[in-house]
């Protein structure tokens, strides 16, 4: 999928959608709902990016095991998003640091770049707060969770 606004393969205008994730994964339904909506947006050939800030960074931690709480562990689904052309995960560095997390504490999420001989590349990009603010402003539609 091109970064430029243009026409989708199915016709119509491609807009830049940013999904803003600010909630931890299991205490509320926000994170799971966001994931569902991201998949819908991707199915419509839109230009999709994800932002993770505040408690939203907890969605991406390694080693989640929900066996004891009777809920589905949906964290593996983030690693499948690359197959749906969802390849940009912007994670706010300050939010990680405030919560005692390091980049290594996050899952390895990658995608295969079709424009670069299907080379496997990281989907997660650490960005500082000011950069994330700029990224927000560059999107046509912001969906907040």
């Amino acid at each position: 999928m091109s970064d430029d606004a243009g026409m989708a393969e199915t016709g119509g205008v491609v807009k830049k959608f940013l999904y803003v994730n600010r909630k931890a994964p299991y205490g509320t339904i926000y994170a799971l709902e966001a994931l569902e909506v991201v998949l819908i947006g991707a199915a419509f050939d839109q230009n999709v990016s994800l932002a993770f800030l505040d408690d939203g960074v907890f969605q991406l931690t390694k080693g989640q095991d929900t066996a004891g709480i009777g809920m589905k562990n949906f964290s593996p689904a983030y690693r499948a998003l690359g197959d749906y052309d969802v390849t940009r995960f912007y994670v706010e560095r300050e939010s990680l640091e405030e919560r005692g997390l390091k980049p290594d504490d996050l899952m390895d999420i990658t995608y295969e770049d079709e424009d670069d001989d299907w080379e496997e590349k990281p989907s997660i990009q650490l960005v500082d707060r000011a950069t994330l603010a700029r990224i927000m402003a560059e999107n046509d539609v912001i969906l907040s969770f």
Binding site: V20, R22, K23, Y30, M136, A137, N139, D140, V141, I142, S144, F145
Partner: peptide, 8 residues
């Protein structure tokens, strides 16, 4: 404004 952001 060109878009809105809800801080839920």
């Amino acid at each position: 404004h060109h878009a809105t952001q809800s801080w839920l």
